[in-house]
Design a protein around this nucleic acid. Structure first.
Length: 679
RNA sequence: GCUGCUGUAGCUCAGUGGUAGAGCACUUCAUUGGUAAUGAAGAGGUCAUGGGUUCAAGUCCCAUCAGUAGCUCCA
C-alpha cells in the first residue's frame, strides 16, 4: 500500500509501489504526457522513480511551467561550469550562475580568460557530461562544514557569500555531480538528459555582487531548451528581433545617422527621420495648447552660476561636457600651466566662470518664471520647450537612439500650488496616455517612485511628501492599468511616475516621466503672492511624455518594425508606373496627391512592375499606387496596401479621400507578421 | 569607465603573410511590362587611424578611435 500526497493536499492511494509516471497517469493523460519529472521533499526524481510508503509528498513538474525550464537551465549552468573547470587551466573561482528570461549565465574569475574561441570545446565537454547521465545529488551541511568545503575547493566567493549573503542560514545545500560540487539552493533536474538542447551565447564582464569597486568577473551567457526545435525557434526569434532593431531599420530606411567624426552619441537626423520627429512634435504641441501650456525657447548654454544654484554643478560634473571658458581666461590659464583638475577645482570654487552646455532645461525655465512677480492667479504656469540637452554618458553605455549624449526632451515645467498639484499631475498623465494611445503602445509599465521611509536625503516637508506621493498614486490610477510603487525610487527632490517600455531585445528603457520637485523652487527662492497677500513657495512638476525624442523614436521604430502608420510615414505612397508609357499620367497622379497634402513620390524607372513593388515593400511603404494604360484611360489608380495587399483600381479621388481620412484619424494598422509590438 | 567580440566598396559580407573580392545599390545601354528581383556593360577601396614585426601585412603585435553584447552608471 502506497499513498501519495499532492501539493493541493489530496491523497492518492495505490495498491503497491508506483512510479511518478503512473501517478501522473492516474491523474490524467494530459499530465502524464507533459510530466518531466517529480519532486519529493525538494528532491527531483525521474519519472520512473518508484514511490513507496504513505503520504509521500509528490509534486509533478511539467513542461508548461516556467519553473521547469528554469530548473533545467540552472542545472545546465552547473554542467557548463563543470565543463569550464575541466577545460580551462589555472585557478577558477566560481561566482553565481542563475537563470535569466532567455537562458542562464555563470560568472567566473579565471586565470586563463575565456574567449569565444573556447565555445566549441566547452559545448563538446558539456555534451560529454550530459551523456554520462550523472544525477545532481543534494547535500545539506551545517555552516562550518559548508565554509570548510568551499575553502577546501578554494572557492573564495562562495566562502564570502556564506559568511555575508547567507549569514542567517543554519544549514547550506550543495549539489554534486561527478567531480563538480557547488553551493546551490537548487532544485535541479533528476537527470542531465533532461537538458534537450543548449548553446553558449556570449561573454561579458560583470562585477562581483554588481559592485564596480569589486573584482570584474567573466560572465558566460548561454541558453537551453527541452527540445532542439524550441532552441532553434528561440534563435530564429532573436534573429527576427535583430531585424527590427531601430539601429538596423534606421540605416535601412534612412532615418538618422551617427557619424564618428561628429561624435559618439550625437544624432544627425536625416530628412525622413526629421520628418517623423516633426510630426510627433506637432502632435504633442496640439495637445499642449489644449492643456494650457505656454511654449518657450531657451539657449543651449548657461553660466556655471545657474547650475551651481540648481545644485547640478559640481555634483554632476562627471556626466557633463566640460565647461566652456572664455578665450582670455583660457589663454591665461594655459600660460599658467593649469591642469584640467585645477581648472575644475577653480570652477567649483567660483574662481573662474564659464558656461555649461545645458544638461537639463529646468534652470532656464525657472529663470523665466522668476523674471517677473507671480501671483497665485498666474498659477499653474506651464512652460514647455523641446529642449536639447547634453550629457556626458559613459562611452560603453551609448548606443543607437536610446542612449545618446545630445537629446531633445519634450520638456515642460509646471509651477503650481500645493492645492493644484493633484489635478496637474492627472493632466500630465493624460498626456502620456494620449501619446501611448496614439501609437497603440499598450505594453508599458508604470512605476511610482516614493521616498525611502527611513531615508534622510529628502528635501521638503514630510507632510507635503505624503500629499505628493498620494497625488502621484491617484494620478497613476487614472491610467486604468496596474502600476508598481517603489520605495526609495523617488528623487531626493520629490516623488515621480515613470513609464518604461522594452526594446526589441528585451532591454528596458524609461520614456515618459512626471516628477514632483520641492527642491529647485527652494534653491532659486521662487515665490508667488497668495490670496493672503503673503509670498508662498510654488511646487514644480517636471514632465516629459515622450521622455526624449531620440529614445522615443528609437523605441517607436521597433514598436512599428519600421512600418509607420500613415500619419507618421515620411513617404506615404509611391506611384509606380507599369511601363514608361504611363509616365505622364503617373506624374499627374503624383502631383494631385501632393496637392492634396500627401507625401508621395514616383518610381518611373524602366524596371518591371514586380521589381518596383518589391522595392516598395522593402521600403515598408504604406501604399503603392500602380498606374498603367488602363488607369490612365479610366482616371483610376490601382492601390496596393501594405496590410491588405492589392485593393484593385479605384478613382483617384476615392484613394485621396481614403488616405486623408487615415491620416486625420491617425489610424494604426498592423500587419500580422510584424510581431505585434515589442515595446 | 570595465570585460569579450568586431571594423574591407553606399549596404550586407567573403578574403589564415605573397597582384583587393562577391551580392545588392549606383551609372549607361538594350528592353515597355499589370502586383515581391529583365538582361548586359561600367564605375566604385589609403582594407577605421597611428605605430611596430617581416623580404613581404587587409591578414601577426601594440596603441587610439568607433561599433557591438553585457556589467556599472543614468540629475
Amino acid at each position: 500500500m502506497t499513498s501519495v500526497q499532492l501539493p493541493d493536499g489530496s491523497i492518492k492511494e495505490f495498491e503497491s509501489s508506483v512510479t511518478v509516471k503512473e501517478v501522473a497517469k492516474s491523474i490524467g493523460r494530459g499530465l502524464a504526457k507533459a510530466a518531466l519529472w517529480g519532486e519529493i521533499d525538494l528532491q527531483p526524481v525521474p519519472l520512473d522513480h518508484k514511490i513507496e510508503g504513505t503520504k509521500v509528498p509528490l509534486k509533478i513538474i511539467t513542461n508548461n511551467k516556467n519553473a521547469a525550464l528554469e530548473t533545467m537551465r540552472h542545472s545546465c549552468a552547473h554542467v557548463m561550469a563543470r565543463a569550464v573547470m575541466r577545460i580551462k587551466k589555472g585557478s577558477i573561482q566560481l561566482a553565481f550562475g542563475p537563470t535569466t528570461d532567455n537562458g542562464f549565465y555563470y560568472d567566473f574569475m579565471l586565470e586563463d580568460p575565456l574567449t569565444e574561441s573556447d565555445f566549441p570545446k566547452i559545448e563538446a565537454e558539456m555534451a560529454k557530461i550530459i551523456a554520462l547521465d550523472e544525477p545532481f545529488e543534494r547535500l545539506v551541511e551545517p555552516r562550518e562544514k559548508a565554509v570548510q568545503i568551499c575553502a577546501d575547493l578554494k572557492q573564495e566567493f562562495k566562502v564570502e557569500h556564506i559568511n555575508e549573503g547567507l549569514a542567517d542560514d543554519e544549514t547550506l545545500s550543495f549539489y554534486q555531480q561527478g567531480e563538480f560540487i557547488d553551493l546551490c539552493r537548487g532544485p535541479h533536474i533528476p537527470s542531465p538528459k533532461q537538458i534537450g538542447a543548449f548553446k553558449l551565447m556570449s561573454i561579458a564582464g560583470a562585477y562581483w555582487k554588481g559592485d564596480q569597486s569589486r573584482q570584474q568577473l567573466q560572465r558566460l551567457y548561454a541558453t537551453a531548451f527541452f527540445t532542439q526545435e524550441e532552441l532553434d525557434k528561440h534563435l530564429e526569434n532573436q534573429e527576427e528581433a535583430k531585424k527590427r532593431d531601430h539601429r538596423v531599420l534606421g540605416k535601412k530606411l534612412g532615418l538618422f545617422h551617427i557619424d564618428e567624426m561628429v561624435g559618439q552619441g550625437l544624432v544627425l537626423w536625416t530628412p525622413k527621420g526629421a520628418f517623423i520627429r516633426q510630426q510627433l512634435q506637432d502632435f504633442i504641441l496640439f495637445h499642449l495648447r489644449k492643456q494650457g501650456y505656454d511654449q518657450v525657447f531657451t539657449p543651449h548654454i548657461g553660466k556655471l552660476d545657474l547650475y551651481k544654484t540648481s545644485g547640478h554643478f559640481p555634483y554632476y560634473e562627471d556626466s557633463q561636457y566640460p565647461a566652456i571658458v572664455d578665450r582670455d581666461t583660457m589663454s591665461k590659464l594655459a600660460e599658467e600651466g593649469c591642469t584640467c583638475g585645477e581648472l575644475s577645482n577653480q570652477m567649483s570654487a567660483g574662481e573662474i566662470d564659464g558656461y555649461l552646455l545645458k544638461p537639463m532645461n529646468c534652470p532656464h525655465h525657472i529663470k523665466i518664471y522668476d523674471s517677473q512677480q507671480r501671483s497665485y492667479r498666474d498659477l499653474p504656469l506651464r512652460l514647455a520647450e523641446f529642449g536639447t540637452v547634453y550629457r556626458w554618458e559613459q562611452s560603453g553605455e551609448i548606443g543607437g537612439l536610446t542612449r545618446v549624449r545630445g537629446f531633445t526632451q519634450d520638456d515642460a515645467h509646471l509651477f503650481v500650488t500645493q492645492e493644484q498639484l493633484a489635478d496637474e499631475l492627472i493632466g500630465c498623465i493624460k498626456l502620456v496616455k494620449i501619446v501611448f494611445g496614439a501609437m497603440g503602445m499598450e505594453d508599458y509599465s508604470v512605476r511610482v517612485g516614493k521616498r525611502d521611509p527611513d531615508g534622510d536625503k529628502y528635501v521638503g516637508d514630510p507632510k507635503n511628501w505624503d500629499l505628493a506621493e498620494q497625488a502621484c498614486r491617484e494620478a497613476a490610477e487614472t491610467l486604468g492599468k496596474p502600476f508598481t510603487e517603489e520605495e526609495g525610487e523617488a528623487a531626493f527632490y520629490g516623488p515621480k511616475i515613470d513609464f518604461v517600455v522594452n526594446d526589441c531585445l528585451g532591454r528596458k528603457w524609461q520614456l515618459g516621466t512626471v516628477q514632483v520637485d520641492y527642491n529647485l523652487p527652494e534653491r532659486f527662492g521662487l515665490t508667488y503672492i497668495g490670496a493672503d497677500n503673503a509670498p508662498h513657495r510654488p511646487i514644480m512638476i517636471h514632465r516629459a511624455p515622450f521622455g526624449s525624442m531620440e529614445r522615443f523614436i528609437g523605441v517607436m521604430i521597433e514598436h512599428f518594425a519600421g512600418s509607420f502608420p500613415l500619419w507618421l510615414a515620411p513617404e506615404q505612397a509611391r506611384v509606380l508606373t507599369v511601363s514608361e508609357k504611363s509616365e505622364d499620367y503617373g506624374r499627374k497622379v503624383e502631383q494631385q496627391l501632393i496637392s492634396a497634402g500627401l507625401r508621395v513620390t514616383g518610381d518611373y524607372r524602366s524596371e518591371k512592375l514586380g521589381a518596383k513593388i518589391r522595392d516598395g515593400r522593402l521600403d515598408l511603404l504604406p501604399y503603392m499606387l500602380i498606374v498603367g494604360p488602363r488607369d490612365a484611360e479610366n482616371g483610376t489608380v490601382s492601390v496596393r496596401d501594405r496590410v491588405e495587399g492589392d485593393l484593385g483600381a479605384m478613382p483617384l479621388a476615392q484613394a485621396i479621400a481614403r488616405f486623408q481620412q487615415e491620416v486625420e484619424q491617425k489610424t494604426v494598422r498592423r500587419t500580422h507578421d510584424d510581431g505585434g509590438g515589442a515595446s
